[in-house]
Design a protein around this nucleic acid. Structure first.
Lengths: 128, 128
DNA sequence: ATAACTGTGTTAGTGGAATAATACAGTTTC
DNA sequence: GAAACTGTATTATTCCACTAACACAGTTAT
């Protein structure tokens, strides 16, 4: 069963997107694998304290991407191939890196400074 | 006069916030300095193709932060001290770095990988 | 078979963002 | 001083993302 223990909600971005991101990042990290069962819509919504439809929306979008298989009545589960994982990783890393690099460059920060910042905050986020 | 030439609108976040970010990043980069005049609400809204009220909202929030001085009838201009710039820089860099680092760590990426990614995308965003 | 689960679909409410149309007052420029 | 700019304020409206509440149908376990 996929875990949502270290899931921390942030305001500013939609909850359903945070759920999607949490799952995709788990896939990339290898903590979520092919065939793994997902918590049901109702169970997860109760766990996160949100409406079942919010979870449904996240699961539906993942299903539309082909990452989840849902059969009415039975639990949903992950559908992952090596190729899928690879492309998800590329997609997410690219998005995050591009956003951060663009911001830093717009602030006139040099590559050397950026390296220092990276290392500084890498340690700062140690407690995960 | 503050330039908005390399301003590129993104959907996903409110326009008024993008305007605020553009200005703050310019301040950090040093391309926007104390006393610099801002384009009027009407001019900028025409330039960006948005409603004057959207620009007004951005300017108003910057004024509430004390970064802009507005006198009825005259053009608004930047109000910046060394301390202000320093604190803005800390605030923005911290936010961006924290977000990126947290994402990379959740994907199980190592610090070495992160360094490579940084350098790769640093070159990729060269054209600014 | 029945209870308790599962997924799915429909409908409705809420809030924020963006747009729009004005109006008024101060300043700059000539 | 007159014209053309500037900032400020008000009000209403539209639109959509997000969330919520509920009903319905299939599956599983006992």
């Amino acid at each position: 069963m996929i875990s949502f223990d270290n899931f921390t909600m942030v305001d500013g971005s939609p909850i359903y997107q945070q759920i999607i991101l949490h799952i995709k990042r788990g896939v990339i990290a290898g903590t979520i694998a092919d065939g793994d069962e997902l918590p049901s819509r109702r169970v997860l919504s109760a766990l996160l304290g949100v409406n079942p439809n919010t979870v449904q929306k996240a699961y539906k979008m993942l299903e539309d991407e082909g990452l989840i298989a849902s059969h009415s009545g039975a639990k949903s589960c992950m559908v992952l191939t090596a190729d899928t994982v690879r492309s998800i990783k590329l997609e997410l890393v690219a998005a995050d890196a591009r956003t951060a690099v663009r911001a830093l460059r717009q602030m006139g920060i040099s590559l050397d400074e950026a390296r220092e910042i990276l290392e500084k905050y890498w340690e700062g986020e140690e407690e995960q």
